[in-house]
Design a protein around this nucleic acid. Structure first.
Lengths: 222, 222
DNA sequence: GCAAAAGTGTTCCAGATACACCCATGT
DNA sequence: ACATGGGTGTATCTGGAACACTTTTGC
């Protein structure tokens, strides 16, 4: 079976920059390429867009195939189409980025063993194609959005402390935040609420647990 | 001649939302479609991406073919790929938007007569495909960028008055600006400079003419 | 009792906002 | 002289930044 057209057509893929935060580091999901080009090289998860799915559906499908997670935050980043970005064929990639809460990052067993792994964003291996460029742009977008949206809440598990949330901000922004100003600012958004429960977590005072008010919604601030 | 692939491929186009400002209205360039689907309907200029050009090159080429202008500000907006956005074939469109200075908006004579026209953004006809959606998103992006960049300067001719620049802001934001605060803010950016010339322009005091310091650069503010 | 994270307010500064009158020109 | 857009400064408000000590627990 083959599909024929009057003019040459590029192939269209989606690539997904999957972020999570674990152990106070920003992590990124990569897969090891099984086929040429860049065989054996690490790359962003992604694949061809099917005829009957939207671009976002394609990205969500790739994400679920690699990680088993669904329903997480997913946003279109940019479309990359330099003619030589793939050495063999003309491939246009619509890149998305996804944020996975830290309590849902267990990779599905289905993903064949060692071919899928989390990497610290500061310790990435060499990446295939222009994927390092895509990953950098995704990080810039994410850091920018911290300032004018509630996007960081997408990383949080069901219950979390303000200290944990602050660590998320500090990890992405690579800068310490003032504790009192941070709490004032976050609580003023009214995007999270105290649960009333506390978490005892070592030799110190227990912390109040919070939850996100509307977990789906990413509000724009100001 | 025909081009064959093992899997079906979408066609990839670029569409360009071309803005200008004339007579204190935000205007948008549309072309009348000669072929089906949506024959006779107004649409954004655009066309297929050639095998050897980048996406931005494709957008710039389409823009120059329709308007004769080149070298203007051009930025990728978003990529639209709903499976049914074109009723006949799967077409993925990488949308750009362009800003044309008001002294360069004469359409090339080559564009066959009445098939290319400027429309006021508030008086758009029905548009083909999802082009009304694309145009709305482009306007939102443009309005947002006024607040944190010097993008509005891309609309200005070589020499202009502060009153004219203020009109540009008011037109895009659809809101009056305070004259004194506007001038203070703009001049503090140091993105424009007085030329020393004045323009006599009617029964009132002549206005100082300014020019953009670095016409290529769009600076991010704050 | 001591180590370790949680929790809590006030002062200060900078940038945004509100606001009204005189100036130079053409008719 | 009058109509028209050009040009200018100050007081106020608001949101962000800096900053240190007490509380509660486990060991």
């Amino acid at each position: 079976m083959s599909y024929c057209y009057d003019y040459p057509r590029p192939a269209v893929t989606t690539d997904v920059v999957v972020f999570t935060i674990r152990e106070e580091t920003l992590q990124l999901l990569l897969i090891k390429r099984a086929a040429a080009p860049y065989q054996g090289c690490w790359a962003l998860p992604g694949g061809f867009v099917e005829p009957d799915e939207s671009l976002e559906q394609a990205a969500a499908r790739e994400l679920e195939e690699e990680t088993g997670v669904a329903g997480v935050y997913l946003e279109q980043l940019y479309t990359y189409g330099a003619p030589d970005r793939d050495p063999r064929d003309r491939i246009i990639s619509v890149a998305y980025y996804a944020l996975v809460p830290s309590d849902r990052l267990q990779l599905r067993a289905a993903s064949d063993a060692e071919d899928v792994r989390w990497f610290g964003f500061d310790a990435l291996p060499a990446l295939a194609f222009d994927h390092d460029h895509i990953a950098r742009m995704a990080h810039e977008r994410l850091a920018a959005k911290l300032d004018y949206s509630t996007i960081a809440l997408q990383f949080m598990p069901e219950r979390f402390t303000l200290g944990e949330l602050q660590e998320v901000y500090e990890t992405i922004l690579r800068a310490p935040q003032d504790k009192r100003n941070f709490r004032k600012r976050i609580l003023a958004l009214e995007a999270i609420e105290a649960t009333g429960e506390r978490r005892r977590n070592g030799a110190h005072r227990p912390a109040m647990l919070y939850r996100v008010r509307d977990p789906q919604r990413v509000a724009i601030i100001k």
